[in-house]
Amino acid sequence: MTSEPSRAKFDEILSQHLPVLGDDKPITDGLRTVEYGLDSIRRLKLLAALESGFEVRFAPDDLTDATFSTAGSLWQAVVALRTAVPSE
Rank of each mutant, 00 (worst) to 15 (best):
S73F: 02
A59D: 14
Y36F: 15
D29F: 09
E4G: 00
E55F: 13
H17R: 12
S40N: 03
L63C: 13
L38M: 09
L46N: 04
A8L: 05
L14P: 03
L21A: 06
G30C: 04
G53H: 11
G53S: 00
G53I: 02
F10L: 05
D39S: 10
S69Y: 02
T64Y: 01
T83V: 14
A77Q: 05
S69G: 04
F54Q: 05
P86K: 06
T64P: 08
S3I: 15
R42D: 02
R57L: 11
A59L: 06
G53V: 03
Q16D: 13
L74N: 10
P5A: 07
D65K: 07
L18G: 01
L14G: 04
Q76K: 04
A66R: 06
L46E: 01
T2W: 04
P19M: 05
A71G: 05
L47W: 10
I27M: 00
E55L: 11
I41V: 13
A59M: 11
L44V: 11
D61H: 13
D65W: 03
D23F: 15
F54D: 13
E12Q: 15
T83I: 01
E55Y: 11
R7W: 00
D24C: 02
V34Y: 14
L31P: 05
D61F: 06
D65M: 06
D29S: 13
T64C: 00
A80H: 00
L21R: 15
W75R: 04
T2L: 05
Y36W: 14
V78E: 12
P60C: 09
E12S: 15
D61Q: 11
G30E: 12
T83Y: 10
R7Y: 09
G37E: 02
F54Y: 13
G37R: 12
F10H: 06
T64M: 11
T64H: 09
R7D: 05
L21K: 13
K25C: 14
S15Y: 05
L38P: 05
L74V: 08
T67I: 00
V79N: 05
T70W: 10
H17E: 12
